[in-house]
């Protein structure tokens, strides 16, 4: 092994460490910026049947209703979650969900079930899920 190979092998770990620290700073900075991401339904959405998944890349949330308690279950821990029930006149009522057993579960009692059952076929919903300043938003319909 000649001197140049030795020098390159000696320098490489320092560059890797600088890269690691730089990436860490960059990702932390990026995570603190307020960013909006659109969640899209992953297949048909039936909130009352506990089958409604919204996704944006690796992030997924499941919106379901159990006996009047609306639950949001996410793949990453959330800082906050707000659910909006939208009526046929496009007027929305906001429900700030409370943390369940851990930051992956957020829930609140809402009139979603009654409204959904009273509606003809679908219920319009909106959601804002916050993670470290990033907001995941969606407007979606739950089918009966």
């Amino acid at each position: 092994m000649n001197r140049h190979t030795k020098l390159a092998i000696f320098v490489a770990p320092f560059l890797m460490v600088i890269g690691y620290i730089g990436s860490d700073y960059f990702l932390e900075y990026q995570a603190e910026q307020t960013q909006l991401y659109q969640l899209e339904p992953d297949g048909p959405c039936y909130v009352l049947a506990e089958e409604c998944v919204l996704k944006s890349n690796e992030f997924k949330i499941n919106v379901l209703d159990k006996n009047g308690t609306t639950i949001v279950n996410s793949t990453f821990p959330l800082d906050a979650a707000i659910l909006f029930l939208v009526d046929e006149n496009d007027v929305s009522d906001a429900y700030a969900l409370s943390m369940g057993e851990n930051p992956y579960y957020w829930q609140s009692e809402t009139p979603l079930r009654q409204r959904h059952l009273a509606s003809k076929e679908k219920q319009k919903l909106r959601i804002i899920a916050t993670i470290k300043g990033g907001k995941y938003i969606s407007e979606f319909y739950s089918q009966r």
Partner: peptide, 21 residues
Amino acid sequence: GSIYTFVALIFWYSHQMNKLD
């Protein structure tokens, strides 16, 4: 990929320096 590239860079740099020498 970045790690493979770093390792390849070590040998490429060494090869180029030998040529320069």
